[in-house]
Structures are given as structure tokens and as C-alpha cells.
Amino acid sequence: MERMLHHLLPGEKARVLHIAGGGALRMRMMDMGIVPGTELEVVRRAPLGGPMQLRVKGYYLAMRRGECAKITVDQPEPKQPLAGR
């Protein structure tokens, strides 16, 4: 299932599909290890709409939600554990 990275909640994992935009920001993301195929995990989201903490290739990276919104990720279908749905 395709989602935007900034919609992911803490604990959710996904694989990078595509990074929108270009220039210095995308280059910086790639330098930090975010390339298509990279596995990410959202560790936490700072309160009040602050940045997100991600786990990438075994280290922690902080990025703003606006920047995460440039990253399309692919997430395995949720197993729908909630019986109520």
C-alpha cells in the first residue's frame, strides 16, 4: 500500500519508493541513506507538529513532517488485527 511518510505513526515500518522534488534537499536525504528501497521505521513524532524521528539503516534521523511528505513509501498491507472494523 502506497503512503506518504509523514502519515506514518510511531512504530510503523515502510520501504522508500520515491522521493519527490530535487536539488539539495533530495541529495541530502540520499546522503543520509534515504534512497528507493531503503527500509524506514518511524520512531516518534515530536509534539505540536514538530519533526519526526526515523530509524534508517541502523541510526536515527530527524526530519520535518513537510520533508517527510516528499517521500512516498510502500507499506505491507495491515493485518487488520482490530476485530471491530
Binding site: 534537499l25 543520509m32 541510526y59 536515527y60 534521523l61 520533508e67
Partner: peptide, 9 residues
């Protein structure tokens, strides 16, 4: 400015 920052151990 953009904010892509490592959180070191």
C-alpha cells in the same frame, strides 16, 4: 531551511 539531521547515539 530544511531540517534533515542525525540524532547521534
Amino acid at each position: 531551511s530544511s531540517f534533515v539531521m542525525e540524532l547521534p547515539l
